[in-house]
């Protein structure tokens, strides 16, 4: 993967939301996956974490219990070192945080047809937002749609283009109420995306609305 080619990055609000731990799990997964692919955003996140560290450093003291230190030592004695995390086998498409949710690599994705040649796998997260993997055949369009809330789309394989720009591997499109778009997968290679939203999409047209009933977004 050529990291230098990533052009569309996380914004400050997403970085700060991820750092402060206030984003829904579905968005956290998109952020963690993008950062796995993008050193610029990894560095930017470290900066936001440093702000959190300074907020902690400046926090007023609240006295801990008299036995708190002893209780901590007892916890350490029970389990002195963190269990080593076994290295996961490399995957050409899915970074580690996604492999945890798919429970395997790209071959383990359980695709379901949702119409128009598009396939998806919904990933299990808390309910405040939803996230899915989308498989869009090369040259195929996802129906024209707008957004009620926030939609994040991260490209994992191939590329798509819409009215805004072209999005290749590692690129993240951040879409809100203002954007109506028709993403089209580029010819040549099927496009695999990770897409999260905190509200149902608004499809513009009857057939797309039927599509929505099947996709459930």
């Amino acid at each position: 993967m050529d990291m230098a080619k990533i052009k569309h990055h996380l914004n400050d609000a997403l970085l700060m939301g991820y750092s402060s731990g206030t984003l829904p799990e579905a968005f956290n997964l998109v952020v963690a996956t993008h950062i796995s692919m993008c050193d610029d955003c990894r560095a930017a996140l470290a900066e936001f974490d440093a702000v959190g560290g300074e907020v902690l450093e400046a926090a007023n003291d609240v006295a801990v219990g008299a036995d708190s230190y002893a209780a901590t030592l007892a916890k350490i004695a029970q389990k002195p070192t963190a269990a080593p995390v076994p290295a996961k086998p490399a995957d050409p498409v899915l970074p580690v945080p996604l492999r945890d949710y798919v429970k395997g690599g790209v071959d383990a994705i359980k695709w379901r047809r949702v119409g128009g040649g598009v396939r998806q796998m919904v990933l299990e997260t808390s309910s405040s937002a939803s996230v899915r993997l989308l498989h869009i055949p090369a040259g195929t369009a996802v129906p024209d749609h707008g957004h009620r809330g926030l939609e994040l789309t991260l490209v994992l394989q191939g590329a798509f283009a819409d009215e805004e720009d072209r999005f290749g591997v590692g690129d993240l499109e951040i879409a809100n109420e203002d954007l109506n778009h028709t993403p089209v997968a580029e010819p040549g290679m099927d496009c695999i995306c990770l897409a999260a939203t905190d509200a149902p999409l608004k499809f513009n047209g009857l057939l797309p609305r039927l599509f929505q009933r099947f996709v459930g977004i």
């Binding site: 750092s19 402060s20 731990g21 470290a46 974490d49 440093a50 959190g52 560290g53 300074e54 907020v55 902690l56 450093e57």
Partner: peptide, 13 residues
């Protein structure tokens, strides 16, 4: 890559 306060913040978060 991080100060101790930054690192502790991430663990606490």
């Amino acid at each position: 890559r991080a100060s101790v306060s930054t690192w502790i913040f991430t663990i606490a978060r």
